[in-house]
């Protein structure tokens, strides 16, 4: 068993937020999905206070080693999430981590307060890849913003709080250290890297939102570098992610200092990737995983 944020997990493999809809998967795959649940903890798609439709299509651009997405955080908003989805998530055979994002600190405070009493929730991931409305700086790539945000939020939640950083910084270690000093219980990284693509044969952007986030094997070296750098600085546990396709990739992130590894884009190519990667990891590392 692995201890992470006060939860005991059977293995180090979880999912990246927004890359696996467990409720849709339950409809599509039925009982087999619950029996062979692919992750040791489940991270929800990012929820915002108000409902969001998401970005106009097209939302996907394929790369030889990954993809660019401009999904745009579609979600039903916190109130309906709590009423409709939370009871369903609570019946999944894995602890639940809820991912939230706010455009202003007050929004996040409200969300934390509304989620605080809910025992179904094992931990909360704060998706800090959003720009501060006042400064325009991305909270998760700026140490000052991260510390200020974390300081403001911390008193409003008794839950374990995971700060998910944005990779658009050369000093993720400083951002992580700032979040840690202001009370974050764990760090997760990396989120997608910003990028764009032109439509074939044109100078117009392909993606409906103009640009998007790069994920998959193309960003794996960035993930490894940032995880190693953060691990050398903070003491709180790290959820490492970015381009994990197999047990070897997962083992590398653990070697770089991650406690848990999240699988994102690979889920799209293999719905049961979580199970496969966990067992490949066990084969590679054997008992060493259990003593992390």
């Amino acid at each position: 068993m692995i201890a992470f944020c006060g939860i005991e997990l059977s293995n180090p493999v979880i999912n990246g937020s927004g890359t696996f809809d467990a409720l849709a998967a339950r409809r599509v795959f039925g009982e087999a999905f619950e029996r062979d649940f692919p992750f040791s903890a489940y991270v929800s798609k990012t929820i915002t206070l108000e409902p969001r439709a998401g970005n106009p299509p097209p939302r996907l651009w394929e790369l030889g080693q990954g993809m660019i997405n401009s999904i745009g955080l579609p979600n039903k908003g916190l109130a309906r999430f709590i009423d409709e989805d939370l009871p369903e998530y609570a019946t999944l055979p894995a602890p639940l981590i809820v991912s939230i994002m706010g455009f202003k600190p007050e929004e996040l405070v409200t969300m934390l307060q509304l989620l605080d009493g809910r025992d179904e929730i094992a931990a909360i991931e704060l998706n800090f890849s959003c720009p501060n409305v006042k400064t325009g700086n991305i909270v998760g790539s700026d140490p000052v913003e991260s510390e200020a945000m974390m300081t403001e939020l911390r008193p409003h939640s008794t839950k374990q709080l995971i700060a998910k950083l944005a990779p658009s910084t050369s000093r993720p270690d400083l951002v992580a250290a700032a979040a840690e000093s202001a009370g974050a219980d764990a760090i997760s990284l990396i989120n997608t890297l910003p990028g764009m693509a032109f439509a074939p044969g044109s100078k117009e952007p392909w993606l409906g939102a103009g640009s998007g986030g790069i994920s998959g094997p193309a960003i794996r070296p960035v993930a490894l570098g940032q995880v190693a750098r953060v691990a050398s600085t903070v003491r709180i546990p790290i959820v490492g992610m970015g381009g994990v396709e197999n047990g070897r990739d997962a083992a590398a992130l653990i070697d770089a200092g991650a406690t848990l590894v999240a699988v994102g884009t690979e889920n799209f190519r293999d719905p049961a990737a979580g199970n496969r990667i966990a067992s490949e990891l066990l084969q590679i590392r054997g008992d060493r995983v259990a003593t992390v």
Binding site: A24, V28, F29, K45, G54, P57, P58, R59, L60, P74
Partner: peptide, 17 residues
Amino acid sequence: ESGMACGFGACFGCVVP
């Protein structure tokens, strides 16, 4: 038809209005 990454509801990439 629309561009799809996963086919099982995971990515939210295939939406149509």
